[in-house]
Design a binder for these strands. Sequence first.
DNA 1: AGTTTATGATCTATAAATAGATCATTTCGG
DNA 2: CCGAAATGATCTATTTATAGATCATAAACT
Lengths: 111, 111
Amino acid sequence: MPKTNRPVSPYAADAAIRLGQLIRRGRIDRHMTVAALAQRAGVSRGLMQRIEAGDTGCAIGAVFEAAAIVGVRLFDAGQVTMSRDVESNREVMALLPKAIRSHRTEPDDDF
Amino acid sequence: MPKTNRPVSPYAADAAIRLGQLIRRGRIDRHMTVAALAQRAGVSRGLMQRIEAGDTGCAIGAVFEAAAIVGVRLFDAGQVTMSRDVESNREVMALLPKAIRSHRTEPDDDF
DNA sequence: AGTTTATGATCTATAAATAGATCATTTCGG
DNA sequence: CCGAAATGATCTATTTATAGATCATAAACT
């Protein structure tokens, strides 16, 4: 068996699986085939299968694309509000420190 | 400038940017440096920068990993509930049709 | 039941992401 | 201010994902 992709924490893996489930569910609700969804998302059928399976190696753009098509909203808001949030948050970020001054990068090495 | 990655819809792009902003914000709130977060997530500093910038080409596993570390919960629930949802949803999915019978894959070809 | 079609899985070539190093710039802390 | 350090950007080598085809199986509709 060929080694698949990089290791991730259980939480991240579960999150990807959960999102894949939501996408699959949305697709079925809309009576679409995997091939049809893949075509609309501009990806191959194989990739869409991996997205629905929760493969952590998939590009986040492709996953979000599929999610949007089948009506899965991650940030409980439409496109308009989304762009507004992105903009408004940019202003907030401007007030935050540009660089973080860490007293120690490592938690603790000397035991 | 080298051509970066595949094209995605505005919504998917915004979603990635929004998530990147949330991660960056969470990181700063926790007084972590980009390098430190990258190390904890098991990725390179360059990748972490792209994640915070909302690059749609990043692996979803790496992004979710970073999000989890800085406390950004995409599915408003802790790890335990997450795994439970994944499981319970599997049962629901089992009741749904395994294959979708599309009357027509293409909207309409003959005009 | 029989037929059609979606799905799942696997393989190869290609394209793209990632790691790692390096440099310039900004910014924080003393 | 003046160092130390974080960030941002860019480059190359390598790893990895993706497209596309193909095959086998399973499921849906008649």
